[in-house]
Computed example of a mutant assay.
Amino acid sequence: MTNIKNIKDVAKHANVSIATVSRVVNNLGGYSPATKEKVLKAIEELEYQPNALARGLISKRTETIAVLFPEVSSMFSSKILKGVEETVHQRGSSVIVCNTSADGEKTLKYLKVLQEKRIEGIIFVSEMITEEYYKVISSMKIPVVLVSTESYQYSIPYVKVNDRHAAFSATDYLIKKGHKKIGMISGNPKDIIAGQPRMDGFLDALRLHGLNENEKNIVCRDNFLFADGYQALPQLLEKAPDLTAIFVASDEMACGAISAATEKGINVPDQLSVIGYDNLPLAEMTIPPLTTVSQPLEEMGEKAATMLFKMLETGESVESRIMPHTIIERKSVK
């Protein structure tokens, strides 16, 4: 059949009203089994494809959620997105992905566009919720779940690991391997989500084992990227040349640090042990393969989507979830 059929054609073919066809298509009830069978038969015979936008106008549902990432192309984001998408598609819904570039104006613009598109829920990844963001989100009156971030100011459910505890575990692991002169390449201490907590965990472990908590053993960077680790390692070794091990606050930074060490003729792990954070696929590709703290990123995405759907179904908030972290041993720590 070459002619594209619409809902009026289906109603005429089944000898029912357009409203009845709409109710059957959207599974809203209010019709007999015989009527449903007639409508479904007409849909099959006419090869009718219900229009998603039309369904949304009738049901007042778009069956679409949005995921906002500060850097959508990163391995970190792709692992979370995989978990989100699998769960969302199992529920028969769709995902819109927004790359905010951690830019406040761009994030606000995206939120306003999503509001116009009547998005049903938002998963907000790895970025702090500002007052401006919260005002827009509140006005949308839709569920929101945070991933790899949390808000101390606003009551929004989240899924994340305990960053302070995970950083403690990484540093404690180095100490138990016999290292006493340990440094850190950190994110920005003004970042209260992943920057300062990971520094605090590092210092907690040193303190517990009675080791010197010297701030010269920490170099901070604004981001968690390869270039940050590459540039930070020489700075750290200039300040503390006797270090035997370093904890690096992301796998990408750790890869940068290993690259800089190699250029300086420093053997990892024989002369300098390195532990990262995240357990991205990249960690298995380095030479040597990177020992790291694993965040269950796919599971975090799945859990966030599941929580979002529960909020959509019940209209009630859900409890936040702290996910487990583990040490993945490879070859970068002696």
Rank of each mutant, 00 (worst) to 15 (best):
T2R: 10
I4C: 00
N6G: 14
N6W: 13
N6T: 10
I7P: 00
K8R: 12
A11G: 09
A14C: 04
A19E: 09
R23V: 02
N26E: 09
N27T: 00
G30V: 10
K36Q: 15
K36M: 10
K36S: 04
V39R: 04
I43E: 12
E44V: 06
E45S: 11
L46A: 12
L46H: 14
Y48W: 09
Q49T: 07
N51P: 02
N51C: 08
R61T: 12
T64Y: 06
P70F: 01
E71C: 02
V72F: 15
M75I: 05
L81G: 06
E85Q: 11
V97Y: 14
C98M: 13
T100P: 07
A102S: 08
D103W: 04
K106E: 03
T107F: 00
T107M: 00
K109V: 03
K112D: 04
Q115F: 03
K117A: 09
F124D: 10
S126Y: 12
T130S: 02
Y133H: 08
S138P: 00
S139K: 07
K141G: 01
L146G: 05
V147M: 06
S151G: 02
Y154I: 13
P157I: 00
Y158E: 01
Y158M: 01
Y158V: 04
N162Q: 10
H165I: 00
A166I: 06
L174D: 05
I175Y: 12
K177P: 10
K177H: 13
G178H: 06
G178T: 06
K180G: 14
K180P: 11
K181Y: 01
M184D: 07
M184Q: 11
S186N: 11
N188R: 04
N188M: 01
K190E: 08
K190H: 07
D191W: 03
I192P: 00
I193C: 10
Q196C: 00
Q196D: 05
D200T: 09
D200Y: 05
F202Y: 13
D204I: 03
L206R: 04
L208Q: 15
L211D: 13
N214Q: 03
V219M: 10
V219S: 08
Y230A: 10
Q231A: 13
A232K: 05
L236M: 09
L237E: 12
E238W: 08
E238T: 09
K239L: 14
P241L: 13
P241A: 01
P241R: 07
D242M: 03
A245S: 09
I246G: 03
I246R: 04
I246T: 02
I258L: 15
E263K: 13
D270W: 07
D270R: 11
D270V: 06
Q271Y: 15
V274L: 04
V274Q: 08
V274G: 05
I275G: 02
A283R: 02
I287T: 15
T291S: 10
T292S: 12
T292H: 06
Q295A: 14
Q295G: 12
P296M: 10
L297A: 10
E299N: 14
M300H: 08
G301Y: 15
E302C: 07
K303E: 10
L308Q: 09
F309N: 02
K310F: 00
E313W: 00
E319F: 01
I322C: 09
M323E: 13
P324F: 06
T326Y: 15
I327Q: 02
I328T: 07
E329T: 11
